[in-house]
Design a protein around this nucleic acid. Structure first.
Lengths: 138, 138
DNA sequence: TGAAGCAATTAGACAGAGTCCAATTCCCAT
DNA sequence: ATGGGAATTGGACTCTGTCTAATTGCTTCA
């Protein structure tokens, strides 16, 4: 019942439930991210969005991605020193990063267990834990 | 016996054993990183190096940090989307990153155990695993 | 219909990290 | 001293991302 294809209408609803006013451009950007289920850079998002439709400006792409981020619609993945990737998958999971190709793959968190981490210092709370496995073709 | 203070002489040796011709500038940069045992950005390294001594150019700082990296003298830590940190500690360990202050702290790897990771796809080898715990003041 | 008001979008200037290149300097062996 | 290869340098350049002031567009209310 919940599994819906990412039509423009469904995406508009998704935005609304996250407290985001759906607009033309925002829906296109959401569509770029959610329809292909990949990790995209801001630049890639802009290319995809402007491929077939009228223009969306760089400023809007960045504004929108940061808005989505704030509202918890997407996540940020920091693995490449030169650019941020945006991840439409907000379920807890980790990443494998191919240093050669720059390709980023999900690792399901379900079975992963991390033990032996030290106590956090007092006065701080965990915001999240990233695990990144860097790989290279043999 | 092996624990030596980071004098210029010791650092020159350290560079040589890693196949790096020690020069004036390289030694100063190594000194900046190893004497204080912190995570520094390229910019911070340049500031420190130029504080007391004659000029070292931006190009040299970047050249040298990348050279050290290549030769396994230091590690790269990618947690901040806007800049890379360089870590003089090459022992296996993980990191805690304070999103508020930008401070980066080591977590000893000794006791940390990660289980349940899936098999790597064939044809790739692990280059390393990073664990980053993002924290925020409560 | 239309005017007001607010939110979203935009172009383009800007900022900062990092790279590149051609010219110079340094160091060392002869 | 001198020649040669490596290291360094300034400065221009690229790229990602931000900022700002102006414009557009949407909604509401008359």
């Amino acid at each position: 019942m919940e599994s819906s294809p990412y039509t423009r209408n469904n995406l508009a609803d998704k935005l609304r439930t996250h407290g985001i006013t759906p607009t033309h451009q925002r829906i296109e950007i959401a569509h770029a991210l959610f329809s292909r289920c990949e990790h995209l850079s801001a630049d890639q998002v802009m290319t995809i969005v402007n491929e077939r439709h009228s223009e969306t400006s760089k400023a809007t792409v960045y504004n929108t991605l940061n808005l989505f981020l704030e509202k918890g619609l997407i996540r940020e993945v920091i693995v490449d020193p030169s650019k941020v990737f945006y991840d439409p998958n907000t379920e807890p999971h980790y990443h494998m990063y191919d240093l050669e190709s720059g390709r980023l793959t999900d690792i399901a968190a379900a079975d992963v267990r991390v033990t032996g981490l030290p106590q956090l210092p007092p006065g701080v709370v965990t915001e999240g834990m990233d695990i990144i496995i860097r790989v290279r073709p043999a």
